[in-house]
Amino acid sequence: MSADTASALSFSARIREASWSRHQGLDPAAGADGDREPGLFDRLFDGSLSVADYTRWHGQQFFVYEAIEAAGERLAGDPVAGPFLFPELARRESLESDLRFLMGPKWRSGLEPLPSTRAYVDRIRASAAAPAGYIAHAYTRYLGDLSGGQAFGKAARRNYGFDGEGASFYDFADIPSPKAFKDEYRARLDAVDLPGDAKDALVAEVLLAYDHNGAVLAELGANLGRNPFEPKVVAAICHHMNHDHADDTLVICRGAGGQPRAHAARMTGFDGEGADFAAAVGETEVAIRVDWARPLSERAEVRPEIVRIFTESKEALDGEAGAA
């Protein structure tokens, strides 16, 4: 976009113009290549996205909105950011409700940000400390939810038979007219009290938000259908290990995980090939992957494999202690 063109556009129109190509290419597999594999959005709309993969996508969104809404709470009294804080947009509680429905009461134990999600959240926390950064990330997510997100909600209800919970994230009960609301939001963007360089930074941050969102979708898309265990099962077993067998989890991370100096640990997930843990070593949390002895596909196979890994870890640690 030329400088003359940009200056002729309202600020909200400038943001839309600058981000249009990012918006069009959000689903990483949704390009023009006829040989491509269907992406996450494709599978949602054609009905082939499993409820398990839908749940994993939903779970990653929780971390993003948790970060955005925490930033909004900090900026509630800011004269620039304040006009963009709308209680009716908040999504964190609806995501928690959906995840409780999809994964059970222990949902939080089975939810861990993907590397791409962690990078996205880190970027939100860094940039949304300033009003322009917050507005950029809030605009990108919330106006997207009120636009294309409504089609996602409709597809989820159709595919999985949800009635309320499960897709309540897409319900904006306190916004009777999304179009009128979006018009008001854009009017506030046009009137935002920011100098030119801060507006430039806001536009650049919107583009980064799209890029981070695309990276999360790409990572999710690369793993569609690969985990034979339902998120509800993962959450229940992780909760059991972390609350009832915390000492055993630490032994596994010290032994099989190769972190003998770990002073705390938690199980963060597992799939058919292995289990994931996070160990606290000093002031750092270290991600650990421990492979199963063979591929697993049934819940009943998980416990014996964890017992084996724990036993081998304890024996190895006891042997090292004896040798010392």
Rank of each mutant, 00 (worst) to 15 (best):
D291V: 09
F310G: 08
I306C: 03
H239Q: 11
E273L: 12
R308N: 09
H263I: 13
T284W: 06
G274F: 01
E298Q: 15
H245M: 06
E230S: 13
I288L: 10
G282W: 04
V286N: 08
D244K: 14
D248A: 11
G225I: 08
H243S: 13
V307K: 11
D244F: 10
P304V: 01
M241S: 05
R289A: 14
P228V: 04
R289L: 11
A264L: 03
G258Y: 07
A265P: 07
R299F: 08
E285Q: 14
R261A: 15
N223Y: 05
E298H: 13
P260F: 00
T268S: 10
I306R: 05
A280Q: 12
A275T: 08
I309D: 02
D291N: 12
V290N: 07
V290H: 05
D276H: 13
A262N: 01
A293I: 04
E273A: 15
T268M: 01
A262L: 00
S297C: 15
V290R: 07
H245D: 06
L224T: 06
I288F: 02
I237M: 05
L224I: 12
E273R: 15
I237S: 00
T249K: 08
W292F: 10
E273I: 14
P260S: 00
L220Y: 00
A287M: 07
W292V: 08
G274S: 03
I309G: 00
H263E: 14
V307D: 11
D291A: 11
A279P: 01
H245T: 01
R294L: 09
F277T: 04
F310N: 12
G282T: 04
V286A: 07
E273Y: 15
F270H: 06
A279E: 02
G221Y: 00
A256Y: 03
D247C: 00
P295W: 03
P231G: 04
R308H: 09
D244N: 15
P260H: 01
H239G: 10
T268Q: 01
A262T: 00
K232M: 13
A293G: 15
E301C: 05
P304C: 00
M267P: 08
F229V: 05
N242C: 05
H239Y: 14
S297V: 13
I306D: 05
L250S: 02
I252C: 07
A222P: 04
A300D: 13
F270W: 03
I252G: 03
V233T: 13
W292M: 06
V290P: 08
E283W: 10
G269V: 05
